[in-house]
Design a binder for these strands. Structure first.
Lengths: 155, 155
DNA sequence: CCAGACTTAAGAATGATTATAGTTGTGGAG
DNA sequence: CTCCACAACTATAATCATTCTTAAGTCTGG
């Protein structure tokens, strides 16, 4: 559940380094919010972070939690689980397949691989619960978005 | 992009079979909504399905689209992409890891595997765009939910 | 110490999804 | 083929999470 103390310290250090490098101010709020996410392994949502941070900083606002989390996300200090900020998407393809998802535009394409279908999960996973499906998610930037991003560079 | 005609027909047949078996009424709306999802490979969201179905059934309501999609989901005829119905969750673990997600309660746990980190993706994926990260998502039912679901059955 | 970046507070706005209430249509019975 | 009960539909209003506004006060880093 909890992340090791040393690991948390390392993350905090990295956090401070990045904020300084980016010229972003180091406020308690930001520290406490990041620490809270860094110290737990249970992928909390904004509301949960808010509740926990409140214990140390009774006056934080939910708004700040949201703003900070997205800031941290933009700085590469945290990531979101699953497709962020997106609406729910549906899929009628019931056969075993995997996904390539573009982080910029959300473009998603199925791909197949008998190789991947044979994936062996570590034993530790079995102890977590009953496994129903396993699929590989590849995050990246689709061709379209790559093109549109470097319209000048031709070197 | 588009699914083969034969494949679509098969899905439609399966769809009708399941709805009859479950004693759920076969309405045009449901047929058109399912057909729409079945015939495309681009994982549309409810709004997109709504817009497309509208062309054939100008009076459908967005509400029906939502209700139907979740119904189809419950019947196992479609699945959702990424985390369904959930709030955005954040993760400060930047090292390569994978996830086990409980479909009932949303419980999510990281797991590691040097094996999985070495996954070889098929060439077809490279042509889709630039790959940034690959991770395995295991869906299932966590221990807690398994316990709570069969409090009586002991056979 | 100061400027400007940040935060708080309290609303209000947005956008996706869901509930309510009254109307319509499906599918089995006759 | 017609009728009826009730499932399902439409339209509208309500929710819920998230974001934005404004105004005033606070804190960080130079």
């Amino acid at each position: 559940m909890k992340t090791e103390k040393r690991e948390v310290e390392e993350r905090m250090t990295h956090f401070e380094t990045v904020l300084r490098r980016e010229g972003v101010k180091l406020t308690h709020q930001r520290m406490e919010i990041f620490r809270e996410v860094a110290r737990t392994g249970d992928h909390p949502d904004a509301e949960q972070v808010f509740q926990r941070v409140r214990k140390h900083l009774p006056t934080v606002s939910l708004d700040t939690v949201y703003r900070t989390l997205w800031l941290l996300n933009d700085l590469g200090l945290v990531t979101t689980l699953g497709s962020s900020r997106e609406r729910t998407r549906f899929d009628a393809n019931l056969s075993s397949h995997h996904h390539f998802v573009c982080e910029q535009c959300g473009f998603t394409r199925d791909f197949y691989s008998t190789e991947l279908d044979k994936i062996q999960l570590p034993d530790s996973v079995d102890s977590l619960g009953e496994i129903e499906a396993t699929h590989v998610e590849v995050r990246g930037v689709c061709r379209n978005c790559v093109e549109n991003q470097k319209p000048k560079t031709q070197s």
